[in-house]
Amino acid sequence: MGLFGKSDSSSDNPEIRQVEKIIAKEAREDQKNLDHTIKDLSGAEKAHNKSIKAVDKASHQLDKAVEKEHKAAKALNRAAHSHDSAVSNEQSAEKTVEIKKQHEARLEKDLEQKRRQLDELQQRKAHNDQVRETKLSQIHAQAAAAADARRSSFDRASVGGAPASGAAPGAAAGAANASAGAAGAPSV
């Protein structure tokens, strides 16, 4: 009898046939179990290969994610540096504006002081000009009065008859009026 099939010579003995059936049945079940196990092993190998591929794929994705995170970290660092630089520039600009404002205020104060000095000097000059004009008018009036007095005494002395004392009081009065007019002149 063959191992997995019917024997060529069928036994007439029912016990042997019963044993042959049991053995054939066990052989078929063993073959089924073996086929099933081979199939399971093949499925497990496929699943294992899939998991290897999945791990490899996940590893590549991890590498890409790490690389992307590094790029993002670099970009973040650049942005943080740029932001810090912008904040620093802003603070510097604010300080510059404050310094310029202080300088402008100081210059404005100096300008006001110089304007006051100019006004004072203009007023002083105007007053001094008026005083000088008054003095010049008085000097001119006195000189004119003296010249008139000399002329009239010269004229009388050459004519011979008129008293010199009579002409002098008129000339002196004219000179006094001229100097009083100059002194009382309105100031500009």
Rank of each mutant, 00 (worst) to 15 (best):
M1T: 11
M1V: 09
F4M: 14
F4R: 15
G5N: 06
S7T: 04
S9A: 15
S10M: 09
S11A: 13
S11L: 14
S11V: 12
D12L: 12
P14M: 02
E15C: 01
I16Q: 15
R17L: 00
R17W: 00
K21W: 04
I22S: 11
I23F: 14
A24D: 03
E26C: 06
E29R: 09
D30P: 01
D30Q: 12
D30W: 06
K32E: 13
N33Y: 02
D35I: 03
H36A: 11
T37W: 06
K39D: 06
D40C: 04
D40R: 10
D40F: 03
L41S: 11
L41G: 11
G43A: 04
A44S: 02
E45Q: 05
E45V: 04
K46E: 07
K46M: 05
H48P: 01
S51Y: 10
I52H: 10
K53S: 00
K53M: 02
A54N: 12
A54T: 12
V55I: 10
D56G: 05
K57L: 03
S59A: 10
L62C: 02
K64G: 00
E67W: 00
E69I: 09
E69D: 05
H70S: 03
K71L: 03
A73D: 09
K74R: 10
L76F: 10
L76M: 13
L76D: 11
A79M: 14
A80V: 06
A80C: 03
H83G: 00
D84Y: 07
D84T: 09
S85H: 14
A86V: 06
V87A: 07
N89F: 13
N89A: 15
Q91A: 08
V97I: 13
I99R: 15
I99W: 10
K100N: 08
K100G: 02
K100W: 09
K101G: 01
A105T: 07
R106V: 06
R106W: 08
R106Y: 08
R106I: 08
L107V: 07
E112N: 08
E112T: 07
K114D: 10
R115N: 06
R115D: 04
R116P: 00
R116L: 06
Q117H: 11
D119Q: 14
D119V: 11
E120K: 15
L121G: 14
Q122P: 01
Q122N: 02
Q123Y: 08
K125Y: 01
N128Q: 04
D129L: 09
D129T: 10
V131I: 15
V131G: 07
T134D: 13
T134V: 14
K135F: 03
K135E: 03
L136D: 01
S137K: 13
Q142I: 01
Q142T: 03
A144S: 11
A145H: 04
A147E: 12
D148E: 05
A149P: 05
R151F: 11
R151T: 11
S152V: 14
S153M: 07
F154K: 08
D155H: 08
D155M: 08
D155G: 07
A157L: 05
A157P: 00
S158E: 05
G160E: 15
G161S: 11
G166C: 01
G166W: 06
G166I: 07
A168S: 09
A168C: 04
P169V: 13
G170D: 09
A171E: 15
A172W: 05
A173S: 07
G174Q: 15
G174T: 15
A175C: 03
A176K: 10
S179C: 02
S179N: 04
G184K: 05
V188D: 09
